[in-house]
């Protein structure tokens, strides 16, 4: 199911069951991941292109997501100007233990650039001193006081989120 809400930067492809809160796509073979497992195994294949190209790919992926052979995906509604990347990005999520099966699907749909990113890397890069957070702060032109507020907020958010490593992972607000 493609969830396209104008208020969100991202357009999501998630199982309809997930939208209606009866299913958590962050699982491996039906077992929800704990915070510890999430940081160890969860990740994504990265695909980049124009919004139109990613929109076409999203339509092709939707049936695989509904069949639950691909857990979920999301892509940029527009380029993130702060990052100066020049293209939109799609993240196709899955557990690392099933990533080659998911890659085979992407490859069959014509994707050639193969780049896997663990969520742990992303979490680290959005923490104070991390490349993504600092680049975002710089791109926004924040003064040092505002920048420090953003860093403290990030620090608190991730500490709260992962403090119980055995709790079921409940997602990151986006």
């Amino acid at each position: 199911m493609i969830v396209d809400e104008a208020t969100s930067h991202f357009i999501f492809i998630v199982p309809a069951d997930h939208v209606y809160l009866t299913y958590n796509y962050i699982n491996y073979k039906g077992n929800e991941l704990t915070n510890k497992e999430y940081l160890e195994y969860w990740g994504k294949w990265i695909v980049w292109g124009t919004r139109e190209e990613l929109g076409l790919l999203a339509k092709k992926l939707d049936r695989f997501v509904e069949q639950k052979v691909i857990p979920a995906a999301k892509y940029d509604r527009a380029e993130i100007s702060e990052f100066q990347f020049g293209e939109c990005v799609m993240c196709v999520y899955c557990d690392a233990r099933q990533k080659e099966e998911v890659w085979d699907i992407l490859s069959s749909l014509g994707i050639e650039d193969k780049a896997w990113v663990f969520e742990k890397e992303t979490v680290e890069r959005w923490q104070p001193g991390g490349h993504l957070l600092e680049k975002w702060i710089k791109g926004r032109g924040l003064d040092e006081i505002e920048a420090e507020k953003v860093r403290q907020s990030s620090r608190k958010k991730f500490r709260t989120m992962f403090e119980d490593e055995n709790a079921i992972f409940r997602g990151i607000n986006q």
Partner: peptide, 8 residues
């Protein structure tokens, strides 16, 4: 080779 910003 890709910029790390794509990993967000």
């Amino acid at each position: 080779i890709i910029p790390a910003v794509t990993a967000g």
